[in-house]
Design a protein around this nucleic acid. Structure first.
Length: 283
DNA sequence: CTGTGTTATCGAGGCTATCA
DNA sequence: TGATAGCCTCGATAACACAG
């Protein structure tokens, strides 16, 4: 509204002949518009976000249910099962955004070095999707647990490669259903449908909630390691792709931060995956 | 630290092609 | 012909960047 008021002021000065009378009325108009600005921000309190995390046990149960070939898997096609379980695992373990996930290309994964790269590709001409998912913030690269890398590789080699249309673009996750869109990059809404199914199993869940959960786990882990708060903040910013609040200092020890961030990322993944391993062994 | 602008996500409703 | 697994749109709102 402030901007609108100022623009109207500018416009009025342009249009009206400059006289004392006009000047008075313009000032009055601007004052009146500004007086009507809402004085309360509509943003919600930041503190409430902390309560927004899920239970690990519920996520474990969900992951078991999603694992391909399991009795009672909500998806019928094996490739779809494999893809969906993989998308879930990546979201849970890395805390990347929904858009970043759908925007992943096969090339973004370094299968030899076990790393994942988040790249911005706004308005990519190669993306035929109506709604193009993009990485919202900074690009970044971090290591991926070998198990996840292997699963991605298996998905590409065993499932994605069977679809001819998938060879024409590099996007990692594709549509498997036969028809016009088979092999095309999976759409935002198709992904929504997937989340919809998850909701039917564990109740309120969405992609961003997994991101919140990742941050929650990250906090616990940092606390357990006795990481200083400032340090933790920097690592978190790097891994989540946020701007570093400090300017020059960040450039100075970026590499160090990157390394430590990489370690933390791996450790978190190891923790979650190891626990899952334990459970399967017990059964 | 706050206010403001931009962009992604959520969530719900509706449509379409394929298959058994 | 119904079930399934896709797809599209859009308003509301949350998440983020950045200047003051």
């Amino acid at each position: 509204m402030s901007v609108a008021a100022e623009y109207l002021e500018f416009l009025a000065r342009r249009v009206c002949p400059s006289s004392e009378e006009a000047e008075k009325r313009i000032t009055a108009m601007v004052a009146q518009i500004k007086a009507n600005r809402p004085n309360q921000t509509t943003k919600t309190m930041v503190g409430e976000r902390d309560e927004n995390h899920l239970e690990d046990s519920a996520l474990d149960a969900l992951e078991t249910k999603l694992s391909p070939g399991t009795e009672g898997n909500p998806f019928t096609d094996y490739s779809v099962q494999f893809r969906n379980a993989l998308m879930f695992a990546i979201l849970r373990n890395t805390g990347i955004r929904r858009g970043e996930l759908l925007n992943l290309k096969v090339d973004d994964i370094d299968f030899a070095g076990n790393t994942l790269r988040i790249v911005r590709r706004a308005d990519s001409p190669h993306d035929i999707r109506r709604y193009q998912p993009v990485a919202k913030t900074r690009e970044r690269q971090f290591p991926l647990h070998a198990e996840l890398v292997n699963r991605i590789h298996e998905y590409v080699a065993q499932h994605r490669s069977k679809l001819a249309a998938a060879k024409r673009h590099g996007y990692l996750f594709v549509t498997h259903k036969e028809g016009r869109y088979q092999g095309a990059p999976i759409s935002n809404s198709a992904f929504s449908k997937f989340i919809e199914v998850l909701k039917g199993i564990v109740g309120a869940i969405h992609a961003h909630k997994l991101r919140h959960h990742w941050n929650y786990t990250f906090s616990s882990l940092s606390a357990a390691k006795g990481l200083p708060a400032a340090r933790e903040e920097k690592l978190r910013s790097y891994l989540m792709g946020w701007e570093q609040t400090s300017g020059t200092a960040a450039t100075y020890n970026r590499r160090h931060i990157k390394q430590e961030a990489a370690d933390s990322m791996l450790e978190l993944q190891r923790k979650v995956l190891a626990r899952k391993q334990d459970r399967t062994n017990e059964q």
